[in-house]
Design a protein around this nucleic acid. Structure first.
Lengths: 185, 185
DNA sequence: ACGCCGCTGTACAGAATGCCCACCGGAGGA
DNA sequence: TCCTCCGGTGGGCATTCTGTACAGCGGCGT
C-alpha cells in the first residue's frame, strides 16, 4: 500500500515554504470542536485503520497538527477511545430488546448493581418518570429472551416491567451527523 | 519506549522450539468465538492503541496468530470497526432522551427517512407494538430538547409520541461481559 | 491414515511512530 | 503599542511496527 503522494515536496527542500493560511483554530472554541476536528473524526470513523501520517496526507495538514489535535480531542474527552465495535448478533445474540422497569422507592442502587451483573444488559439508563429505568438487553433467541428477562426482573425492588423487542434497526448508532453539525457550529 | 522483552529468543535461533499446546481453536466454533478471541477483544477494548505486535506479547502468542484472528473476526463481522467513540456531551449535546413514536399505517418508510435526516437522532429502532419506533436523541439543553422533539415529531405520519429524558447512565454501553460469556460458551 | 488448518518462530524491506528542532503568524495581555 | 503565548508548519532522526513470506509441528475431521 504505497503512499498516495509524497508527504512533502512543494518547493525547495530547505526554504521555509509560504505556509497556507492558518485558518484561525476555532477562535474561541473552548467547549466545542473545530472544522478540522470534524474532518479528522469523520476520516477516522470511515477508515479507522489509517494512522496519523495518512490522516495528515488526506487532510492536507502537517503530521504534528494531526497528532496534536488527536491528543487534545482525547484529553478533552471528545474521543473516549478506539475500542473494537463488536456486533452482538455475530457472537450469538441476535435478539435485542428494550425493557422499561419500574422500581420501588429506595431500591435504586441495589437494582443497578443487580443489572450491572447481567452480561446481557448492554446499557442502563435512569429516565424521567417514577423511578423508572430503561434497559437494553440482548438474547440468543426469542425463547432465550424470556430467560434473560426473568433474570433481569427477578429481583426485589422491581415492581413492574414492560419489554419491547427490536424488529429492525433502520438507523444504527451514529454520531457523524452530529459531529458535522457541531463542527459547523 | 523499549519493548518489555525480546519478541523472540527462547532457544537456539534455528531450532523449532517445542511450541506450547495449541489449545485447539474453538473446535466446532463456527458461529461463535473462542477464548483467545475473547481475550483479544478484551485487550483491544482496554488498550485500543496497542498494535498487533504488542497484543501478541500480552497474549503470549505469535504475531501471525493475532493477525489471523483479527482478520477473521473482522471478516466474520464480529468486529465491525475501530471507529473513534465520540462523547455527545463533549461536543455540546449533554442531554439524552428516548422518544417512542407511534406512526400511522404505511408511513414507516417516510418516517424513517425523515428521522435519518435529523442529526440529533443517534439511533432508531422499530419495535413490537403497533408500528412503533424508539428513537435515541440528544440535545444541547433541556430547552433545546424541545426544538429537537418538535423537529422529530413534526412530520406527517407520526401520530403520537412520548419522551423520556435520561437522568443518569449507571451502565454505559458495554459489550465485554457478553463477549466473555460468548467466549466461555 | 492422510490431509487440512491453525499456530509457531523467523526473516526482511518498507513504512509509520515518537520526539526533537526552528520558524511563522494571529490573539490576547501588559 | 509591543511582547509573549500558542498553534501550525516543515524537516530530520532513531526506533519500532507492519505486511508478507516461509518452513515446521500437531490436533482434527474425513
Amino acid at each position: 500500500m504505497p503512499p498516495a503522494q509524497s508527504p512533502s515536496s512543494p518547493g525547495s527542500p530547505d526554504s521555509p515554504a509560504p505556509q497556507g493560511t492558518p485558518t484561525t483554530p476555532a477562535a474561541g472554541g473552548n467547549d466545542s470542536i473545530d472544522a478540522l476536528d470534524g474532518r479528522l473524526i469523520r476520516l477516522l470513523a470511515e477508515e479507522p485503520r489509517i494512522g496519523v501520517l495518512e490522516c495528515s496526507r488526506r487532510l492536507q495538514v502537517a503530521r504534528g497538527t494531526v497528532q496534536a489535535r488527536l491528543d487534545r480531542l482525547q484529553a478533552k474527552g471528545v474521543i473516549s477511545g478506539f475500542g473494537p465495535e463488536v456486533d452482538p448478533a455475530a457472537i450469538g445474540y441476535p435478539v435485542t430488546a428494550f425493557a422499561t422497569l419500574e422500581i420501588s422507592q429506595g431500591q435504586g442502587a441495589d437494582v443497578r448493581a443487580h443489572l450491572a451483573r447481567v452480561p446481557e444488559v448492554l446499557e442502563l439508563h435512569t429516565i424521567t418518570g417514577i423511578g423508572d429505568m430503561l434497559v437494553r438487553i440482548v438474547a440468543r433467541s426469542n425463547a432465550d429472551l424470556q430467560r434473560v428477562i426473568d433474570r433481569v426482573v427477578g429481583f426485589d425492588g422491581i415492581v413492574r416491567s414492560s419489554t419491547a423487542i427490536v424488529l429492525e434497526n433502520p438507523v444504527p448508532y451514529r454520531i457523524l451527523p452530529l459531529v458535522d453539525q457541531a463542527a459547523a457550529e
